[in-house]
């Protein structure tokens, strides 16, 4: 049995606690990195991270890409949308196909 964690600034993630997710409010990328490491090794199956932190923790997120667990997923923060989630999908397409043939259409 795994748990689901959410990392981000408090205002963006407070609502998830009502769903039963464990929330980990952080202010700095450094704290976020620590939390991410702790969660990844601590029985969390899915870790949602708000976009601003995903961008700062690019290398740390990449660490978990090849493993089946945990699954690190970007979600939008309450500040402006950055499109980090879509950029990630785009990267997968580029990796698999060699060039982006899906997101370039628009």
């Amino acid at each position: 049995m795994y748990s689901i964690g959410v990392i981000g600034d408090y205002d963006s993630i407070c609502g998830f606690s009502a769903l039963g997710f464990d929330i980990f409010p952080v202010e700095s990328a450094e704290r976020a990195r620590k939390e991410l490491r702790a969660l990844a090794g601590g029985g969390y199956g899915i870790i949602y991270i708000t976009e601003p932190f995903v961008e700062e923790l690019e290398a740390d997120c990449a660490l978990y890409e090849e493993r089946p667990v945990p699954c690190v997923i970007p979600i939008p923060a309450c500040t402006a949308a950055l499109g980090a989630g879509e950029a990630r999908l785009k990267r997968y397409v580029e990796r698999a196909v060699g060039s982006d043939i899906i997101f370039g259409e628009q």
Binding site: Y2, S3, I4, C14, G20, I46
Partner: peptide, 16 residues
């Protein structure tokens, strides 16, 4: 706001 959300009634466990 913080106290309203402090103690969630709900909890989930994930099965993979």
């Amino acid at each position: 706001l913080v106290s309203a959300l402090m103690l969630p009634k709900q909890s989930v466990s994930l099965d993979i």
